[in-house]
Amino acid sequence: MHARRRTVLTAGAAGAAGLVTACGSSGDGDTGAASAPKTSRGATPSTGTGKASAAGSAPRGEALAKTSDIPVGGGKVFEEQEVVVTQPEQGEFKGFSAICTHKGCTVVSVSDGTINCPCHGSRYRITDAAVVAGPAPRPLAAEPITVTGDTIRLG
């Protein structure tokens, strides 16, 4: 009887893992579609230190993009890594959490000088992630990025 229960539990765990995997999405998040709130990482207020947020953050050193992928005056959301990279001015790159500080939704786009959350309309400045509109209570947390040559990496 114990063997049968173990089989059921193993099958249940495998099924749950499949459901978690099936709920994921791919792409850079610039589609404009709403994303469900993330639970793998809390929205941590920016302290200005540029340190990564708590558990669930992307691996440090991971290549995100080429510098040419980030438009001047805009940015790009990396949904899987929960990071948004902006280029406020030519050659100046900034990294921020892609998790809205209001309800934990993932921001989906960068346009007209702001990082935009689809859930309740919060918008953040691309220069410092300060709140410029919506119900968000705090800026997006800073995320450390490095630029080496034409490659942008986490941490």
Rank of each mutant, 00 (worst) to 15 (best):
T146G: 08
Y124E: 13
S26E: 08
S111L: 07
D150R: 04
P135M: 11
A130G: 10
S57M: 04
A142S: 11
A43K: 02
A130V: 14
A141T: 01
L9I: 15
P88E: 10
T148A: 12
G27P: 05
A13S: 13
F93K: 07
A17T: 11
V107G: 06
T39G: 09
V77L: 09
R4D: 12
T49Y: 08
E62Y: 01
G121E: 14
G155K: 00
I145P: 01
I145F: 14
V77S: 03
I70F: 03
P59G: 07
H120Y: 10
E143W: 14
M1T: 14
K38E: 15
G113V: 03
R5I: 12
L154N: 00
S35G: 12
V83T: 06
E79W: 04
A130N: 10
R60K: 14
S109Q: 09
S25Q: 07
E92F: 00
V84Y: 00
K51V: 08
I126S: 00
G91A: 14
D128T: 02
R123M: 11
G74C: 13
N116H: 07
A130Q: 12
G75V: 06
V85W: 03
N116Q: 09
G56I: 07
G61F: 05
T67G: 12
R153P: 05
T114V: 11
G29H: 06
V83H: 02
C23T: 14
A11V: 12
V108I: 01
G48V: 09
G27W: 14
T21C: 11
K94C: 08
G56R: 03
G121F: 06
G29P: 02
I99V: 15
A136Q: 05
T49C: 08
S122Q: 03
V20M: 12
E143T: 13
D69E: 12
A65P: 04
T31H: 02
K38L: 14
R138L: 09
G32T: 06
A16E: 06
C119Q: 02
K103I: 13
G12I: 12
T10M: 07
S122M: 10
D112Y: 04
T127E: 13
S97R: 01
A11E: 10
Q81N: 06
T148D: 15
G121M: 15
S25C: 07
F78T: 04
F78W: 05
Y124T: 02
C100R: 01
S122R: 04
P59L: 00
A130F: 07
A52F: 09
S35D: 12
L19A: 09
F93C: 08
T49D: 15
G95V: 03
V84N: 05
L154A: 00
V108P: 01
F96C: 00
T148I: 06
G104L: 01
G155M: 01
E80G: 04
L140Y: 14
V85Q: 09
T67P: 03
K94W: 03
T7I: 10
A36Y: 07
H120A: 11
G104W: 02
K66Y: 09
S97P: 10
F96D: 00
G134Q: 03
